[in-house]
């Protein structure tokens, strides 16, 4: 199924989504990689200068260009989500995250975290940075740029029909990555 939702996704939206579904989202995303996860987790939600509950979390370290006083997105595809495995349970709970966008798999133990917090993990095509950049209609803000640098800073992006995102872990405790892990059993005998 293909869905089009506004961010923040509500409970009903999230409950509709099952692994393998395709979804396009419009609204506001904030980017965060390893360093910004670590930095944000050291703070109280009240100390964070933007409202995480109204945004989606995007695992992304964009390539930006400053033209006069304005930031422009050059290329902004997803980064490897598994690097955030160690932070995400606490991060989702603490900041009220309902939508995570990234690439690659996340640790299987997180399926229960997505279920418990009524949250979804969706993936965008890795490396499709130019394509993703064209779905970002506005750079609203940037935080921690001086401390963390371009790729690790938190960028606030307004996006329109951002996708196609594939639901990889849904709010029912399912993971799309399980399907091919099952196939490995067949291949193992060929490895001997």
């Amino acid at each position: 199924m293909d869905y089009h939702f506004d961010i923040p996704l509500n409970n009903q939206d999230i409950k509709q989504l099952r692994i393998g579904d395709v979804v396009y989202v419009s609204g506001v995303l904030f980017t965060a990689r390893d360093e910004s996860h670590r930095l944000m987790l050291k703070k109280d939600p009240g100390e964070i200068p933007f409202d995480t509950k109204k945004m989606g979390l995007y695992h992304c370290g964009p390539l930006m260009k400053r033209i006069n006083d304005e930031w422009q997105v050059v290329s902004a595809g997803p980064t490897t989500s598994s690097r955030m495995d160690i932070f995400e349970e606490e991060f989702i709970k603490k900041f009220g995250i309902r939508l995570v966008i990234g690439k690659g798999s996340m640790d299987d133990s997180l399926t229960s975290v997505f279920k418990k917090n009524n949250c979804v993990f969706t993936v965008y095509t890795g490396g499709a940075g130019a394509l993703a950049a064209d779905k970002i209609v506005k750079v609203k803000d940037v935080y921690f740029l001086k401390e963390l640098g371009m790729s690790e800073a938190i960028w606030i992006f307004e996006v329109k029909n951002f996708g196609p995102l594939v639901v990889a872990m849904d709010s029912y405790g399912q993971s799309i990555f399980k399907s091919w892990e099952m196939l490995f059993k067949g291949e193992n005998c060929a490895c001997k």
Binding site: C60, G61, P62, L63, V74, S75, A76, G77, T79, G127, A128, G129, A130, L131, A133, D134, S151
Partner: peptide, 13 residues
Amino acid sequence: LAKATGRPLCQDT
């Protein structure tokens, strides 16, 4: 798109 617009195709250059 990257070729047509002369932009890096991936943000990770």
